[in-house]
Simulated assay, not measured.
Amino acid sequence: MNKDLELRGDCQIFICTGFEALKASRQIIHRFSKGRPSYIFWFGGDRGQDEIDEPFTHLFEFKTAAQGMSYGELLQDFSRILGENSEKFKDADIFIPHPYHFAANYFLNKPNIAGLYLLPDGMINYSHRKLTLVEKLKSLAKLIYGWIYHVHYYPCVRSLHITRYEDLPYVATFTFEPRRLVTTAGSVFVLDDIINKNDYVSEPGRILFLDQEITEIFSKDLAYAIRMAAFSFMENLNANEIYYKPHPKGQNRINLLRSIIPEAILLEKKGAVENIIGELRVEKCVSFYSTALLVLRRMTTVETISILPSAPPNHTAEFVEGIAKSFDEHGIIVLRVKTQPIS
């Protein structure tokens, strides 16, 4: 890890929408905060046993839509925290995964921020992930919601990468894996994984399926077809045990999986997959474009398999092909399933 980063602010603010960003934030706080207060805004769902124990660190935890929180209620809660802590958040270093998230957007557009930094946020950092038309329209809707709840939002409608690494003044980019990293803005700092790959022991015939909300880039019909293709693939593996882990911010589709594989086991444990993989001892892990595949490939001997469409829609083709190339370079098996192309 680089040693020459000097944070500029009186405090640090971290916007975390997933476990990779949370893990990075903890390392950054430990290495660079030097006793200054750090504030983590967590929007990633149930953290399980992943505790925040760094000194001088304050956690603001928000429920997700999957936990019953509406967007209006989320903004109301966020606005309340801003009002109660406005003096504490001045002259801050801001760490964000991308400016499309409302909290990241709010803080990066505040006057007199000390510095802006890019946190790792999964495979968007390794592909040319641009906002879809639907996401651009949602960005305009966030502007209206921001007026209502006093959380000012600046719409992201330009055809740039979702992180806007091309034009935002990021001081540094943080990553756990620099190979094929697309979002290189400012200095690049490589963070450390913790698990020793050689310590991992698997049980033959055990499979873990990591679900995702892939409708963020695919239509509902195409997402359903890809998901069912993944289920059929696992059915043909003749595994002894298949574990299903829903996305922390997504739906639980165990019943859909059981319509194909009745003996599938719902994984009750919450939190980042790397925190529970040692106990599961699975031989294979199947998902779509989850960052966890890359994490498990780096940290364990699990055989990682990505299910992607062979003919993605035109507006997602660049993203999907970038993911496939990156996964292939990192030793992740990429299976392209045939689905009806949707433009």
Rank of each mutant, 00 (worst) to 15 (best):
N2F: 05
D4V: 06
L5M: 00
G9D: 00
G9W: 00
Q12Y: 00
F14D: 11
A21R: 09
A21S: 15
R26D: 04
I29Y: 00
H30S: 10
K34D: 10
K34I: 08
G35W: 01
Y39S: 07
I40P: 14
I40S: 14
F43H: 14
F43V: 02
D46P: 07
R47I: 10
R47A: 10
G48Q: 08
Q49W: 03
E51Y: 12
D53M: 02
F56A: 11
F56D: 13
H58C: 07
L59K: 15
F60K: 11
K63Y: 07
S70E: 04
Y71A: 06
L75A: 09
D77H: 11
S79W: 01
S79R: 15
A92I: 03
Y100A: 10
Y100G: 04
F102S: 12
L108V: 07
G115P: 10
L116C: 09
L116I: 11
L116W: 09
L118H: 05
P120M: 10
I124K: 01
I124E: 12
I124Q: 03
N125H: 13
N125G: 15
H128R: 08
H128W: 05
T132R: 14
L137Q: 13
K138C: 00
G146Q: 10
V151T: 13
V151W: 03
V151P: 05
P155M: 07
C156D: 13
R158S: 09
S159I: 04
H161A: 04
I162R: 03
I162E: 11
I162A: 08
T163Y: 11
R164G: 01
E166S: 08
E166M: 05
Y170I: 01
V171A: 05
V171M: 09
V171C: 05
T173R: 02
F176G: 12
R180W: 06
L181V: 14
V182H: 13
L191I: 09
D192H: 15
I195E: 03
V201L: 12
P204Q: 12
L208K: 12
F209C: 08
D211Q: 14
Q212N: 14
Q212S: 13
I214Y: 07
K220S: 11
K220T: 14
D221F: 00
L222T: 11
A223E: 01
A223I: 02
A223V: 04
A225L: 02
A225H: 00
A230I: 11
F231V: 00
N236I: 01
L237H: 09
N238M: 09
A239I: 05
N240G: 07
N240L: 07
Y243R: 05
K245W: 05
P248W: 06
Q251F: 02
N255T: 13
S259T: 11
S259I: 07
I260W: 12
A264I: 00
I265A: 07
L267V: 09
K269A: 10
K269S: 12
G271W: 06
G271Q: 09
A272N: 13
V273R: 05
G278S: 04
V282T: 06
K284A: 00
V286C: 04
Y289W: 13
Y289K: 01
S290P: 10
S290W: 02
S290Q: 12
L293F: 01
L294E: 15
R297K: 15
R298F: 00
M299F: 03
T301Y: 08
V302R: 08
T304Q: 06
P309G: 06
P312H: 09
T316H: 08
A317D: 06
V320M: 11
L335C: 03
R336K: 15
V337A: 03
K338W: 08
T339K: 06
I342W: 03
